[in-house]
Write a protein that binds this DNA or RNA. Structure first.
Lengths: 192, 192
DNA sequence: AGTCGATCCTAGCACCGCTAGACATTCGAG
DNA sequence: CTCGAATGTCTAGCGGTGCTAGGATCGACT
């Protein structure tokens, strides 16, 4: 049995290596540079090995997305933990979100821009994605205002942040006024 | 002279044909299906002809984007023209924006999602793009509220719409509550 | 020790964006 | 009217992509 267990462990290790390498490559040179050949070369295996772990490149993107969702949820929760007022919590959350997007563009793309073959906003949505949304809702739910469903409010706030994040990164918004945009969003959307 | 003029005219016609065909193909089967081979096949010329009009696929996307920007500006202006109150104007604008994105996903992608090699938010930004932003600002500038620059407010409102549009289309937001999301955005962001 | 199954790689498919170079056609000068 | 030049277009091909079929190799059991 121990031999099989070792093999399973090695296999799991290799899978983690694939995901980590894909992520690293994507962060350094963009997702376009993450080709199956380069990825295989980087992990020092041949291409077909990738396909014994994942159905295709899309699933690798999905794996990076799930990893990122967990990290993002953690980042958002720790950002809001220290703040005492509701306004501070919301502002910290927004800043943490945009900060994560800026610092991990490839992971952010895997999550919200590319097709990783993941289901969103459904029952079969993977747990990390649900949890990241939950992390948003924990803070945003309390500032939704009367008569507005927390889920709906969270979606709208999230979408706004997403718009700011993506338009900024593609240089369709200038990065200079980033802070002012956050302030405006928080002050107007949240009912404090 | 007339011979040269005819040739120039034919060349311009062919260029329009390329852009129109690219757009059509993209709307029908997505931008991934718009390959230089298929596009060339569709216009009944060989591949290299495309490169005598555009530097590459990116520029073709850019041409579709510019075409789309003009249409979008028109759509937004005619949506706000009929409305009498400021709130109605803003709500109509938002709906027109999201409607355009939903009805012309490929054009919307060319404008705000893909790289068409265009400059945004700069002096050398093409006129159609500037004008589309101007169309937004005409309506949104008057509801920015005191002490908030119209340009900044327009950017934030636009970004929010963009977030809703893209997350909805990639099925990360369910389309059901679309109208509620618009109402919430308008009522909270705009100072009426 | 020999078999047999799991594991991995080589080689290749059909496609991609893009371009060099050959070919035909048209134009303008003598 | 002829003939060289310029223009326009095409064929063929380069290096790349995601993905896979089929063969070689290796290691664990009988």
């Amino acid at each position: 049995m121990s031999v099989q267990e070792r093999k399973q462990r090695e296999r799991a290790d290799r899978e983690r290596l694939i995901v980590a390498t894909a992520r690293e490559l994507a962060e350094q040179q963009g997702w376009d540079a993450v080709t199956t050949r380069r990825l295989a070369e980087s992990i020092e295996y041949s291409q077909p090995v990738l396909y014994s772990h994942f159905r295709g490149k899309r699933e690798i993107i999905g794996a990076v997305a799930l990893e990122g969702a967990t990290e993002m949820a953690t980042a958002m929760r720790s950002a809001t933990a220290a703040a005492s007022t509701a306004r501070e919590r919301v502002a910290s959350l927004a800043r943490a979100y945009l900060d994560f997007a800026e610092r991990n563009p490839a992971v952010y793309d895997a999550l919200f821009q590319l097709d990783g073959g993941l289901a969103y906003a459904q029952e079969d949505t993977p747990e990390p994605l649900k949890d990241a949304f939950a992390a948003l809702m924990e803070t945003l739910g309390e500032v939704a205002g009367e008569g507005v469903a927390p889920g709906l409010f969270t979606e709208v706030f999230w979408a706004s942040l997403h718009g700011v994040a993506t338009l900024t990164r593609s240089r369709r918004l200038l990065p200079e006024d980033a802070e002012q945009r956050v302030e405006l969003l928080v002050d107007r959307l949240a009912v404090l």
